[in-house]
Design a protein around this nucleic acid. Structure first.
Length: 121
RNA sequence: CAAGUAAAUCGCCUUAUCGCACAAGCAUUUAUUGUUUGUGAGGAAAGUCUGGACACCAUAGUGCAAUAUAGUGGUUAACAGCCACCAGCCGUGAGGUUAGGAAAAGUGCAACAGAAAGUAUGUACAGGUAAUGCUGUAGUGAAACCAGGUAAACUCUAUUAGGUGCAAUGUCAUGUAAACUAGCGUUUGAGCGUGCACGCGCGAGCUAGAGGGUAGGCAGCUAAAGUAUAUUGGUAACAAUAUGCGUAGAUAAAUGAUAAGGGUCAAGACACUAAUUUAUUAUUGUUUUGUAACAGAAUCCGGCUUAUAGAUUUACUUAAAUA
RNA sequence: GGCUGUGUAGCUCAAUUGGAUAGAGUAUUGGAUUUCGGCUCCAACGGUUGUAGGUUCGACUCCUAUCACAGUCA
């Protein structure tokens, strides 16, 4: 299995995103917060960093790259489970600049929590 | 040697593995997947302060208002940029810096102090006269017998300028409410023609409120007033010619992650050498730890401004003091 | 990406065409009044006028740069 995260897996539709924040539920593993909603299509994922917390574009882009990379390497946790028709939004909440190691471990934790809550319900 | 001045350049590199975007080819299949190759952030990409390109709207006429610049000449597609020279100011100097037109066209303004701040003549002392603010000094103040000061006050002069900006604009697709309420108006003319008035033209709708719907794709979209070197012209900015290079196009927004090695700088430790204040400074070497500054394209170029660890190169200056 | 606008005490606002120590309400602190508290009265505290330069004798006011925060567009 190739670990990819390409154009077709990105969540882009503004309508879906609006709905996601309106009706979606969330789990968090500080400094990450994962908002999810079942929407009936293939799995879509987006990452986001607030402009309020990071003023400079360089920092925001840097964190989003780390988040994408962490998701890409850990997406095996989602495969072979019944979560392939969900829309996900991964937010970075903290105000401190992270390194890859932190993001990676927290991403694992967040995805684990997500699959747990889904399988329980 | 030290302290400076000016100009210019660079501003992490290599390898491996895994990934992202775009383009082209091949295969599979009809819009996807797989695979190969190539390309993929900056000197400021930033601020949006300016000048253009490009696009759309306007363009019978008249008047008013509004913008910006400000020594002289040159340069450029154009500019508030750049270059040269003159003048003022700062510095020992190399150099730096200046919104640097007009107060004898007009209007305004000047607190406090002062006799007096613009049709203003007064005090003390001195000088002078037939006589008098007639002359000088003092005193107040930023400015006081002068056709004064102030234009980053209005203004005048010269030059400049139609408006809006790629969310422009064109096109395809999807969807809805040509409905409702209030005001103005239909030849006695609302509104529009992108500052205002008149005029001219068009002209039956226009404005506000609450509410309903869509906010997707494609084109525009990247080869350019481009850049490096050499020669010629010019004090220079710059121009011409020749040769080489061919240079990102994302859109919840690509250019990344991990590991190893090199390497810059900083701090600590040790050793050697030199100087002298004999425990400090400096050079060199080894080693340990930390670490690459400011910062991320969004239609495209020229400039300006601001941020920027550190490294390198070239040219030039040094009065006084100390050696 | 483009185009506009606003920054004054902890908070809400003033300050005439550039003129002096930048005011008012509220909040805070102290005092008076009350048996105690509130209301009321008196006083104090609190500002490098977002920041940095410039023009001017003098700047909240004029000019330039910069920082922060809002609004707007198809």
């Amino acid at each position: 299995m190739k670990l990819t995260y390409n154009k077709h897996e990105k969540l882009k539709s503004q309508k879906t995103i609006e709905k996601l924040f309106l009706d979606g539920e969330s789990v968090s593993a500080y400094p990450l917060r994962l908002v999810y909603l079942k929407h009936g299509e293939s799995r879509k994922v987006a990452v986001s960093v607030s402009k309020r917390n990071f003023k400079r574009a360089v920092d925001r882009i840097r964190i989003k790259r780390l988040l994408r990379e962490a998701y890409r390497l850990n997406k095996t946790m989602l495969i072979n489970k019944e979560v392939n028709d969900y829309a996900l939004m991964i937010l970075y909440i903290s105000k401190d600049m992270p390194d890859f190691e932190l993001v990676n471990t927290k991403m694992k934790k967040a995805l684990e929590k997500f699959t747990d809550t889904i399988s329980k319900s």
